[in-house]
């Protein structure tokens, strides 16, 4: 037990040192990268490691007679969590999201310290001590609080009331409801029943299984399967069209959506919000091919009102590409990201 706890304590100390290093910019927060798509799991695992570490640390300190009071444990953990969000997580998450997580963490900490009457009392004790001001130090602290709190609250409210020119927040629906059908180049496509005409096997028949077997591998790098190279001249069917789609993508789309389809193309920095990241599991992986077909054909202007049309400058690609080219690009996007399009069944 003791050995186990010592190990835990070691993890805890190492973890704190690491985080400290990140706070003071000694250890870059990119040392262990959070990989897009796996980020939430990675974070949960990391925080779990920290919790185990802290438990071990607390046990050891307790055994050595240097126990940390519950009050400071609670506050300490909450502060740790805020620091973790701010300094560990990369790419950085905005303050509003951190504030939300921080609040949830605060509630969790309260639940933990008020789990039983004993703990709650222990937690309250330091606060009560200050209120009662039995000792000199506590009395000093009480007066300090008496003066500081009104000043701080006044200061904050002054700051909040000063006219500011912060960017107004505008929320938008990322995947607005598509129409039932869409008319592209004079032909009507019913979204429920249309299929990508290029998702075909070498015999030329629609074949979802065949195409799914030939997409890139869903692991670091998302590389093509060793024997499924779209640049192989012998290809027939699916992979041949993937290559054609890729050519169209790299002549038209990569300027915004990027060489790795992650929304960080050559011109991406000038847009707000930056272009869609197809490698994110929240974008094309959640959608049907026909949705993408509608979205690509009609562009930002074609979005319904709840999609905030002005927040997308994607061109209506029907003005630049043929229907065949659009389907091929879509085929390529799924191939390159390694996602399966959603189907109706």
């Amino acid at each position: 037990m003791k050995a186990l706890m010592s190990l835990g304590a070691l993890i805890g100390v190492a973890g704190i040192l690491l985080l400290g290093g990140m706070v003071f910019d000694i250890v870059p927060s990119t040392t262990v990268r959070l990989v897009e798509g796996y980020m939430p799991i990675q974070m949960i695992v990391e925080v779990a490691c920290y919790v185990v570490g802290f438990a071990g640390l607390s046990y050891i300190l307790n055994a050595m007679g240097m126990a940390i009071p519950r009050f400071w444990q609670g506050i300490g953990f909450w502060v740790f969590f805020l620091m973790y969000l701010k300094f560990r997580v990369y790419p950085p998450i905005p303050f509003s999201v951190r504030a939300m997580y921080g609040t949830v963490a605060l509630v969790t900490v309260f639940m933990w310290i008020s789990a039983n009457e004993e703990d709650w009392k222990k937690f309250k004790q330091p606060i009560m001590n200050v209120l009662d001001a039995q000792t000199g130090a506590n009395r000093l602290l009480r007066y300090a609080y008496l003066v500081l709190i009104p000043i701080l609250v006044g200061g904050f409210s002054f700051n909040a009331m000063m006219p500011k020119s912060e960017e107004p927040i505008e929320l938008r629906t990322v995947h607005p409801a598509p129409p039932a059908s869409t008319k592209v180049h004079g032909k009507t496509y019913v979204l429920q029943t249309s299929q990508n005409p290029y998702r075909v096997n070498p015999e030329g028949k629609y074949d979802q299984e065949f195409s799914n077997a030939n997409i890139v591998e869903q692991s670091m790098g998302r590389l093509m399967k060793p024997n499924a190279n779209p640049w192989d001249d012998k290809n027939q069917g699916y992979l041949k069209y993937v290559r054609e789609g890729g050519e169209i993508f790299f002549q038209n789309c990569h300027f915004c959506h990027g060489d790795n389809l992650n929304g960080r193309g050559l011109h991406a920095f000038a847009f707000n919000p930056i272009p869609a990241n197809f490698t994110d599991p929240g974008t094309i992986a959640q959608l049907q091919e026909t949705f993408i077909f509608w979205r690509v054909s009609k562009g930002g202007i074609g979005l319904p009102n709840e999609g905030f049309p002005w927040a997308s400058v994607m061109p209506p690609w029907e003005q630049h590409l043929t229907v065949d080219e659009i389907w091929k690009v879509i085929l390529f996007e799924y191939w390159h990201t390694g996602y399966y399009p959603r189907t109706w069944d």
Binding site: L146, I149, P150, I151, V153, G154, G155, S157, F158, M161, M162, P163
Partner: peptide, 16 residues
């Protein structure tokens, strides 16, 4: 902007 924060601070003192 100059009045309300003072009012709030006084309120906090009363609360304390």
């Amino acid at each position: 902007t100059y009045i309300y924060p003072v009012v709030i601070a006084v309120g906090v003192v009363l609360l304390e």
